[in-house]
Design a protein around this nucleic acid. Structure first.
Lengths: 189, 189
DNA sequence: TATTCTAAACAACAGATGTTGCCTAATTTA
DNA sequence: TAAATTAGGCAACATCTGTTGTTTAGAATA
C-alpha cells in the first residue's frame, strides 16, 4: 500500500494522479496485457523513467488501482465500520458482485490474466474485513478458516455471476448465494 | 488444452517434451517471472522461434504444465471416475492441499503472480470434476452455484494451508476443513 | 529570500518479446 | 521409393522492459 495522499509533495501527487487516470482510461480502451508502460506514460505526458520511480511495474499499478477502487466501494457502503450480521454479509456480497461486474464491463478486454491478477488484491481486502467482523463478536475460536472459506466463496460467487450469459438481478442472485456463505459464519452471529 | 499426445508428429512430441521438461526444471531453480522464453529454449536446445510455434507465450506454457500435473494427481487417485460422497470429497480436498503444497515447495520462488496464474487452471479442473460428481447423483437442481462455492472454498483452504507457517499434517487440516465444504453439498449425497 | 532537497526529464543500455521469411531436414503419403 | 508436407533452424525486425547517470526545475525549510 502506498502512503496516504495527505502530506505528499504536490509533484508526486500530481504524477500519481496522472498515471492512475491514464491507466484507468487505457483499461477502458484495451486489454491490460496490451497496455505498455510506454502507453501509460505517453498518455500521462510524463517520462517513462518517472513511472518506475513510483511503481515497480505495471502489475503493481494494477494492484494499486484495483485496491483503491474496491476500498472506495466498501467505504461508500460503510461496510468497514460494522461487524458480522446476516444483513451486513448480504450487503458485502452485493458489493463484491456489483464491483466485479462493473469492473469487467468497464474494461475493454477483461481476459483471464487480468482477472487472475485483480483477484488476489480484492480477496486480501475481503479477508481482512471478514476477520475484523468476526473478531468484533469476541469469539474464542480462531477465525482464519471460516474467514478464508467465506472470502473465497464470496469472490467465487461474484466471479461466477459476472460470467453468466443471462444474469438475474444482483439482488436475486445474492439471495440465492447468501445461505451458502452464511452457514459457516452463523456461529459468530 | 493441447490435442492428445497420441498421433502427433514425433518431432512435435519431442519438442514439446523438451520444452516442458526444461520449464519444470527451471521452475525448481528460479521464479516464474524471471524465467524467459530464451531460458527455456536454451535449456531445451531448440530455437526460440520454435517455442512460439507451440505456445503463444510463457503463460500458456505454465497453464499447460500445471494442468498436466494436476490432472495426473487426480487420475492417480482415481477421483475422476467416481461420484459425490463425503469420503471422495475428503480425498479430493487432500489431493488439492497436497498438490498445492508440493507445487509451492518445489518451485524456487512461488510468488504472488505465479500463484494467481496457476489458480485459474486448477480451479477450472476442480469445477468440472465437482459438477460431474454432482450430476452423477441425478439431481434436478442446477449444480453451478454449489459447485462454484465448493471449488473456491477447496482451493482457498488449500492455498491457506500452504501459506501457514506451522502446518498440521494435511490429514488433520482436512478433517477440520471438510465440514465447511461438505455442508453445502450434502443435499446431493 | 537564499539554500537545500528531491521529483521529474532525458538519453542510453543490455536484454527480452513476438513475428517474419527463407532454408533444411525429418516425416507422412501415395 | 519418390513426392508432398511440415517442423525446426536461423537471422533480422521493431518494440518493450527495467535500470542508470546526469541535468533541470520545483518545493520545503532556514
Amino acid at each position: 500500500m502506498l502512503p496516504k495522499e495527505e502530506k505528499l509533495d504536490p509533484r508526486v501527487k500530481r504524477t500519481r494522479g496522472l498515471i492512475l487516470r491514464s491507466f484507468e482510461d487505457l483499461l477502458a480502451e484495451k486489454g491490460f496485457e496490451s497496455i505498455s508502460v510506454q502507453d501509460v506514460t505517453d498518455k500521462a505526458e510524463i517520462n517513462r523513467a518517472t513511472f518506475y520511480a513510483h511503481f515497480p511495474d505495471k502489475y503493481a499499478l494494477l494492484d494499486y488501482s484495483i485496491s483503491q477502487m474496491f476500498m472506495n466501494e466498501i467505504e461508500k457502503r460503510t461496510l468497514n465500520v460494522c461487524s458480522y450480521s446476516t444483513d451486513n454479509l448480504r450487503n458485502l456480497i452485493l458489493a463484491v458482485v456489483e464491483f466485479i461486474s462493473r469492473l469487467h464491463s468497464d474494461c475493454a478486454q477483461p481476459h483471464q490474466q487480468f482477472e487472475a491478477l485483480t483477484e488476489g488484491t480484492i480477496k486480501n481486502i475481503l479477508f481482512e474485513l471478514l476477520s475484523h467482523w468476526l473478531k468484533q463478536t469476541g469469539t474464542k475460536i480462531s477465525t482464519d478458516i471460516p474467514a478464508t472459506v467465506a472470502t473465497w466463496a464470496i469472490y467465487g460467487l461474484a466471479s461466477h455471476y459476472s460470467h453468466l450469459k443471462k444474469r438475474p438481478s444482483p439482488e436475486k442472485f445474492v439471495d440465492e448465494a447468501l445461505p451458502l456463505v452464511a452457514v459457516n459464519l452463523e456461529q459468530f452471529a
